[in-house]
Amino acid sequence: MANGDKQDYYETLEVNRNASDAEIKKAYRRLAVKFHPDKNQGDKEAEERFKEIGEAYEVLSDAEKRARYDQFGHAGVSGGGFSSGGFGAGSPFGDIFGDIFGDVFGARPRGSRGRRGDDLQYNLEISFEEAAFGVEKKIDIPYAKRCTTCNGSGAKEGTEPKTCPTCRGAGQVRFQQGFFSVSKTCSHCNGEGRVVETPCPACRGTGSVRDKKTISVKVPPGVETGIRLKLSGEGGQGTKGGTNGDLYVVISVREHPIFRREDNDVICEIPISISQAALGCEIEVPTLDGRVNLRIPEGTQSGTIFRMRGKGVPALQGYGRGDHLVIAKVETPTNLNQKQRDLLEEFARISGEDATPMRKNFFSKMMDLFS
């Protein structure tokens, strides 16, 4: 998609242009989970949306890139930075004009340039604990490598590529256009200057074959779903001396059966009985560091939050950890037998308003409202 056709990055993340960094991060996390390929298998539209969201976040989460984007739009963040002025090599406009005039006047003979390898993407699913504390994973990456049968020439063993008869090895053809002598890339050899008459059976004339390599990925502590890890030079192999592409590892964190995460805090809801809430008790609760004893004071209400500082998720590329929050959920008993029912009815009969101050306060306010 051309830059002019791209959706506005703020619209992509569904935020206002004056959104804070925290709002941008929150929007990205929500959309990344919604459109993640693992949740939308086979949905090309969702896959494309996921890529657009990642691209938008990569720009808007970086203060310098965001400032350039706000001033110059997509042209300000495509292809690096600006030159000191004009349409030089560092300018995004330089590439535009180079594409138009480079072929016409023969400024960029394509056959003489190395081609950079393709960037690759790998979706890596890890557990909640692995995301919290980091992990090293071995992954198998498919890629195109130089064909050893023909040494990358594309020609069958014992033969060699022939000089292109159309451009005579120049990679370009010239013709007269008005007052100008115009050069265009040779369509017969695609600018290579040579053609393969007898293709190599191993690579079918392409000069490369599919293979796979095993690499190690170090996932840092504190990652979340949607985080992209860049491994420079681990992508597709370059040709004609071109550099290798990069590998982008996109993280997907599996849901935990007990914990959930908000920023760097871990939240866990613990059910307790009415008697435990009323009389107080000591319970054992799970944390990322193992089981910990927690004192529940008497009179604890449902929804009360107990904070264990420093037992949450480590900060990504930072210092310290979040907190572990335990939310007490008072469970109302069900399937009572007759004796249990009688005891509860007796308790209700002898209980005064002092035993339920919240209820007393609520009904007092309701009476004032309707009086």
Rank of each mutant, 00 (worst) to 15 (best):
N3C: 07
G4A: 12
G4S: 14
D5A: 14
Q7W: 04
D8Q: 10
L13I: 08
E14G: 07
A19R: 07
S20L: 11
K26A: 14
K26M: 11
Y28T: 10
L31F: 08
D38S: 10
Q41F: 06
K44G: 09
A46M: 08
E48A: 12
F50D: 07
K51N: 10
E52P: 00
V59C: 01
L60Y: 08
S61C: 05
D62P: 02
E64D: 12
K65A: 15
R68A: 10
H74D: 06
A75E: 13
G81M: 11
G81E: 14
G90L: 10
S91Y: 06
F97Y: 15
G98M: 13
D99H: 09
V104P: 00
F105A: 06
G106Q: 10
A107N: 07
S112C: 02
D119T: 02
N123A: 01
S127M: 02
S127D: 14
F128H: 13
E136T: 13
K138G: 06
Y143N: 04
R146L: 12
R146Q: 15
R146F: 04
C150W: 02
C150S: 04
N151E: 15
G152V: 06
S153H: 08
C164P: 10
C164F: 10
G171A: 09
Q172V: 08
R174L: 06
F175W: 01
F179A: 13
F180G: 00
T185R: 05
V195M: 07
T198H: 11
P201Y: 01
A202D: 15
C203K: 06
S216W: 00
V219Y: 00
G226C: 03
I227N: 11
R228Y: 00
Q237I: 06
G238N: 01
T239E: 10
K240I: 04
K240C: 04
G241M: 03
G242T: 07
G242P: 07
D246N: 15
L247A: 03
L247Y: 03
V249W: 03
V249F: 01
V250S: 11
E255I: 02
I274K: 13
C281G: 00
E282C: 01
I283A: 11
V285Y: 01
V285W: 03
D289C: 03
N293M: 11
N293T: 12
G299N: 02
G299S: 08
T300R: 02
M308S: 02
G312H: 13
G312M: 12
Q317S: 07
R321Y: 11
G322F: 00
G322S: 05
H324N: 13
E331P: 01
E331S: 14
P333E: 08
N335L: 09
Q340C: 05
L344H: 06
A348Y: 09
I350T: 15
G352N: 05
D354A: 08
P357Q: 09
M358R: 12
F362Q: 11
S364R: 15
K365M: 14
